[in-house]
Amino acid sequence: MEWLDQNLWLAWLGLALVLVAIEAATVDFTFVMLAGGSLAGAVAAGAGLGFVWQVIIAVVVSFALILFLRPYVKRQFASSEASHSIGAAALPGRLARVIETVTETDGRVRLAGETWSARVPDGAPPCEPGEEVRVLAIDGAIAVVTNQPAGYQSPDAHQGGPPVGGA
């Protein structure tokens, strides 16, 4: 028990780690704020303050984080600017560079740092290597692209995703 009295900061640190693990499962930004309070308790223990002061500091810091920081963090993660689509859903509208001629059936483009199979919409002219194209949609693992202006909507864009510049 004497070792625990001398190393109480480790208990606070262990509590903080447990709270961060719970936060990873809940993603509600509550347990991570409590973990911040636990870290403040660990600092207080490391500074040599008594257990009562450690608990007071941990509780005050936890409540302050929950009341002031948590709403800001939740707002940032819930805002439309912060909730951009990820993965293939984020690709329509982006620009790509043609690597191999893109026709209605085949082609390759460099998109978001990766090489993608690509095709143009039915009836569209092919895109030549080196040309910059706009992604209209993602159809499975194939990027549907065009060298037309940004407002162009392909006849089959509705099949693979939202139209570019749509309403």
Rank of each mutant, 00 (worst) to 15 (best):
D122N: 01
A78Q: 15
V52Q: 13
V27D: 05
G46T: 07
T26V: 13
A40W: 10
E132M: 03
K74M: 15
A89H: 14
V52S: 12
M1S: 12
R75A: 14
R108Q: 11
G166F: 01
P71C: 06
G41N: 11
Q148Y: 10
R97K: 15
R119T: 02
E81M: 08
V120Q: 01
S83K: 12
A82D: 12
E104I: 09
T103W: 07
A141I: 10
I138W: 02
L10R: 05
E100I: 07
G130N: 00
V27R: 10
A44K: 06
R134N: 00
A89L: 14
A124V: 00
V73H: 09
G46M: 14
A112V: 08
I66N: 01
V120W: 01
V73I: 15
R94N: 13
L10A: 10
V20N: 07
A143G: 05
W116F: 02
A112F: 04
G160Q: 03
A58W: 05
V55E: 06
T30M: 14
G151M: 04
A45V: 09
Q159D: 11
R108E: 06
P129E: 01
I22S: 08
G151E: 13
V55N: 06
A58Q: 03
A47T: 09
G87K: 05
T105C: 02
G93K: 08
D28V: 00
V144E: 08
A21V: 15
R94A: 13
R110V: 09
V52E: 14
E104K: 06
A11R: 00
V135E: 01
V135G: 03
L19Q: 09
A150Q: 09
V43A: 15
V164F: 05
Q54W: 08
V43F: 07
N7M: 08
